[in-house]
Design a protein around this nucleic acid. Structure first.
Lengths: 132, 132
DNA sequence: CTGATAACGATAGCACGTTATCATTATGAA
DNA sequence: TTCATAATGATAACGTGCTATCGTTATCAG
């Protein structure tokens, strides 16, 4: 991983502030590729390696958290959002934030199993993709 | 994928019945590698490609279903188990079945989002791995 | 039992997301 | 403004999980 044995960034480059801005204004978790696409709209010569490097640094600094879904590239979103879960649209493959959570999840675990965290994901079609 | 454009199996080989048996008696979802390890205990010369092929066929026939977790190889379990969810031990990395489900998950979705399915996963330490 | 061939086992090849490399660019302290 | 060097961009290389290939083995209809 870029972040593991790497010094934290020291210089404020155009690329970094643009990438920070992309995640700041994102309405949903973004893959590195999605973030790169948004970045290129502003800095056409920006490379994807820079996005990987910057995202890794932001995760290391605690500004971003990964959002992982099976069979999908990792997405990232701002770490300061309240506890929530995700919805994945099976049509456009985008991932959306849901607000709130559900009680009683821990009760599903058998005795002597210690629950540290949980994830809830809904699958279906988003408002845009609508019913078939 | 092995299963997509492949004819269904016609012969009953030692390997196939052994693999079926492994999943029949498994207490939790198994990766192909785990299933192969169990197979080799009985048929030492068995190759992992056979497990991939057989698992794909069993999925195509509806006997197995995939259990996917981010950043993990796909696991498989019998398709005839009742609706349930999973627990992943962060220490031994094994995945366990939980029984039962939770009400009210659909309510998390925004209006006009259509929910077709959901997944709930708990993370923590299993009874074997215990508290630190 | 025999033989056509399904299936096997070993392993090369592939796809994908990610990381390393390195010549070039541009930041920012002095 | 200068210039040491952090950071970039292009792309090669990597790791992992899975699939294809192909010579060999073993199933099972006849």
């Amino acid at each position: 991983m870029y972040g593991s044995s790497r010094a934290l960034p020291r210089r404020n480059t155009r690329q970094r502030s643009a990438i920070r801005d992309v995640f700041e204004h994102a309405e949903r978790p973004l893959t590195v590729e999605e973030a790169h696409a948004a970045l290129v709209a502003r800095l056409p010569r920006a490379g994807i390696a820079t996005v990987y490097r910057t995202v890794a640094a932001m995760v290391a600094q605690g500004g971003l958290v990964p959002v992982e879904m099976p069979g999908e590239p990792v997405r990232y979103e701002r770490a300061d959002i309240a506890h929530h879960h995700h919805f994945r649209c099976e049509a456009c493959r985008r991932v959306f934030d849901l607000s709130g959570c559900i009680e009683g999840l821990r009760a599903l675990a058998p005795p002597r199993f210690r629950v540290r965290d949980h994830s809830v994901t809904l699958y279906g079609t988003c408002a845009n993709c609508g019913p078939a």
